[in-house]
Simulated scan of single mutants.
Amino acid sequence: MTRTTAQDRALLSAAAQGDPEGVRAALAAGAQLEARDAQGRTALLLAASADHLGAARELVAAGADPNARDARDDSPWLVTGVTGSVAMMRLLLPAGANLTLRNRFGGIALIPAAERGHVDYVRALLRETDIDVDHVNHLGWTALLEAVILGDGGREHEEIVELLITAGATPGLPDGDGVTALEHAERRGFDRIAGLLRAVR
C-alpha cells in the first residue's frame, strides 16, 4: 500500500469525522484524493459509511472515485446500499457510480438495501436508475429473495417486495437450492408477502 503522508492522514480523519473544512484544508495542503487507510478505505468511503454528506460533497467536487474499493470490496457507492442513505446515493450517482459493482458477496447495492429494509432507498434506486433488479449474488439470491430470506416479514420488507415486483423482479427465480421467494415466505409464515408473490406467479 502507498505510504500515507500527514496530509493524507488529515484528509482521512476529516472525512471520517464529517469535517468539510478539514477535507478542503487537507486537499489544499497536498493530500492525495484517493489516499487509503490501513483497511484500504478512501476518504470518500469513510464519509459515505458515516453518511457525512458535507465531507462527501467536497470529495466528489474534487473528483473522488465513488467506486474505489477497500480490502473488503466495499466502495462509497456500495456502502449506500448498507446505510440506506438516499441523499448519499443521489450525490454519488452523477459522480460515476457503477451500478454493476459487486460487494464481497457478489451483490450489487440493491441487495443489502432490500435485506435491511431500506424502503426509501430501494424506491429511489429503482425509480432513478436502471439497476438490475434480478441480479444474483454468490449465495444464489436476488434482492427479492434476500428481502424474504433475511428480512423480518414486517411492513418495510413487504413494501420492498412490492417495489421489486412493480419494478419487474422475477418472482419465480429460485435460490441455489431451487427454492423460490414464495416458498421461503410460506415457510417463514410471512403471509402478506406470500400473498403478494402469489398474485404475480
Rank of each mutant, 00 (worst) to 15 (best):
L197W: 08
A109T: 14
Q39K: 07
L182K: 14
G117L: 14
L99R: 06
H184G: 04
R24C: 09
E158P: 00
A43E: 05
Q7S: 04
A124N: 14
E162N: 04
D8I: 08
R72S: 08
G153Q: 03
M1A: 11
W141D: 12
V136R: 08
R9P: 01
A97S: 13
I149C: 06
V119C: 12
L78S: 01
S13V: 04
V82H: 10
M88A: 11
T129Y: 05
A43H: 06
A61H: 09
D175K: 04
D51Y: 04
Y121H: 01
R3G: 10
P171L: 10
D132I: 12
I131E: 01
I193W: 01
E58S: 11
G107L: 08
R9M: 09
T180Q: 09
D132S: 10
F190G: 01
L91C: 08
A124G: 05
W141P: 00
L92C: 05
D177H: 15
T129W: 09
I131A: 15
A68F: 06
E159F: 01
I160C: 11
L182Q: 10
D152L: 08
L126A: 13
E158D: 00
R24V: 15
V200G: 06
N137Y: 04
A147W: 07
F105R: 15
R90T: 11
E183I: 15
G81P: 08
L110D: 13
R24T: 12
I111S: 03
S85N: 11
L11N: 06
R188I: 09
R192V: 14
R57V: 11
L46S: 05
G30T: 12
D130M: 02
E115C: 10
G54M: 00
P20D: 00
A97C: 15
S49I: 04
I131G: 01
R155Q: 14
R41N: 09
R69Y: 03
L91Q: 03
L99T: 05
G168W: 00
A55E: 02
L126M: 12
G178T: 08
D191H: 09
A64H: 01
P112K: 02
D19Y: 10
Y121G: 02
G153F: 14
R102Y: 02
V179Y: 02
E115F: 09
P174R: 06
E58C: 13
A25G: 05
L101H: 02
G195T: 07
G168P: 01
T42V: 00
D19M: 12
E156C: 14
V119D: 14
V82G: 09
P20K: 00
L125G: 08
N137H: 09
L46N: 05
E183S: 10
A35N: 02
W141H: 15
L197H: 08
T142A: 04
G140T: 06
A62K: 15
A61M: 02
A50Y: 14
S75L: 02
T42Y: 01
L164K: 05
L99F: 07
D191N: 03
G176T: 07
G96K: 09
T180R: 03
V79N: 15
